[in-house]
C-alpha cells in the first residue's frame, strides 16, 4: 500500500504526516508513506488545497487534517 501525504511543509501538513504515521503504526500494516513537498509534484497530484491525503493514487481528503481514527477508516476502505 502506498500512502501519500501532500503538503508544502505547513504546520497542518506535518500534523497530517504524524497522524498518518500513527494510523499506520496502529494498524500494523506494511504501508509506504511518502511525504510530497515539492511544489511541482504537489500540482501533479491535482490537489489544490494542502494538506492532502492519497492512498494508492486516489485522493482521500484535501484541505483538512482528518483524525487518526478517520485515517484508519480511510486505509481500511482502500
Amino acid at each position: 500500500m502506498e500512502i501519500k501525504v501532500v503538503g508544502s511543509g505547513c504546520a497542518n501538513c506535518k500534523n497530517l504526516l504524524k497522524k498518518t504515521q500513527d494510523a499506520v503504526a496502529e494498524l500494523r500494516i506494511d504501508a509506504q508513506i511518502i511525504y510530497v513537498t515539492d511544489m511541482q509534484d504537489i500540482i501533479a497530484t491535482g490537489i489544490l488545497q494542502t494538506p492532502g491525503l492519497m492512498i494508492n493514487g486516489k485522493i482521500k481528503s484535501t484541505g483538512r487534517v482528518p483524525s487518526v481514527k478517520e485515517i484508519i477508516e480511510l486505509i481500511k476502505g482502500a
Partner: peptide
C-alpha cells in the same frame, strides 16, 4: 470556494497549468 491566501500559490499554478 474556500480559499486562504496561504494556498494562493498552488491554486494559481494549479489553475494555470
Amino acid at each position: 470556494t474556500p480559499f486562504c491566501s496561504c494556498s494562493s500559490i498552488p491554486l494559481f499554478i494549479g489553475f494555470t497549468s
